[in-house]
Design a protein around this nucleic acid. Sequence first.
DNA 1: GATCGGTGTATGGTCTGACCATATTTGGTC
DNA 2: GACCAAATATGGTCAGACCATACACCGATC
Lengths: 230, 230
Amino acid sequence: MSKLTGSRTFEQVLAEIERRITRSGLTVGDRLPGERQLAEELQVSRSSVREAFRVLETLGLVECQVGRGPNAGAILTYDPDGTLTDLLRLNLGLSSLTMREVIDTRLMIEQWSAAQAARIPHDTDSTQAMAAALTAMDNATTPEDFVHHDMAFHIALTDRAGNTLNSAIMRALSNTLRQYAVEAVHRLGHTTDLQTDHRLIHTAITTGAPADAVTAVTEHFARAYPPITH
Amino acid sequence: MSKLTGSRTFEQVLAEIERRITRSGLTVGDRLPGERQLAEELQVSRSSVREAFRVLETLGLVECQVGRGPNAGAILTYDPDGTLTDLLRLNLGLSSLTMREVIDTRLMIEQWSAAQAARIPHDTDSTQAMAAALTAMDNATTPEDFVHHDMAFHIALTDRAGNTLNSAIMRALSNTLRQYAVEAVHRLGHTTDLQTDHRLIHTAITTGAPADAVTAVTEHFARAYPPITH
DNA sequence: GATCGGTGTATGGTCTGACCATATTTGGTC
DNA sequence: GACCAAATATGGTCAGACCATACACCGATC
């Protein structure tokens, strides 16, 4: 239960909201009661409700909109990426995590995803996304632009494996590594080798060769994020 | 920057706190200014500071203690597990995630960790933790007790690979699967096969056989979490 | 001098009530 | 029917008060 049950009032509000979500079958897109209404229903102050909402918002479960109408209020949503990205960035700032660990975890997910993607039947969405990212990288003129489409390529690869949890983690890891990747491209000075890697990965997946896909991903990472780096 | 920069006041407070953490080299164990002081320094209301603190607390970066003295106030800490556990549980509640995805991600991490652990030199701490968990599982009398030590075994395995990010994710996944695992043990009716698996994994790691370790982990999961399950 | 106990105080936790900004809804006017 | 203005519901913010807690301080006692 961790932080969602406790003596503090806002934690009890959290517990009640979680109860309503699980019991009453609330799902993504549904609206939560307004702050004032929930405060009165639960006999707590609006401040406590608001603190609970901040927690839910941090966890990527609700989005809050001001104003009036069907789009206003707290809406249940699904966005773990933001939470995970914040979590990674702040822990990197606190030095309780190293860039190398982030890179290794991303390699782990991509190896796994590439193997899975090569085994399952074609998924037009993610396949097209990968192909589009490849050509976009060919046409990229700046490192920033290249990295943008590079991220799209690797995310599409992960999505193709079909595990939404891995996809969410992958997105957060990519966000965290974005600036790092831009600098890496600047250092390399060119992107031809990286694109060669990408096409090897792409071919291995589309031709259904899991082992080749894993090897290609591994070699790509060795080139893009050599072990020397901090 | 995601949620940490925005127009809302508490988001600016968050940005300022993050700035202080990264710039001023604040680290785990240090104290943040009190709510009242920070409110005055930043010329915002205490409510806004509190909402920012709730976010930081949710992200596992600070712990708040009431009272007075060196242990009171907001202390920088490091506990991503709690955040991730909440995140997983709530997303399972929202049905935006399935138990199977959680299990697959855990398998991925354990395969990777087992391979890493078998390659690196012995680490007395985690090696002893694994051995202790094995004997504790032998002596366990209830499924709850068994699962408790089973979790310790698998977490020690992951820790042994030396990636704190993977360890944090692994802990959260284990927490999420705890009840599920207890029920699985009840269904099985006995734990001898599981223990055989554990000892195979343990031996493969301590004798430095990465491939065997991966195989053993994979087969263990096939037994403990067969693909039929919901 | 050391120990014990009461008081002071800084801290987070909560509540109330007010006001603002925004976006939709409502209703009146042309 | 189209358009514009007022009403309204919503989150965002603020100020100020009070409570519970846990340590700090200081005096009395041994």
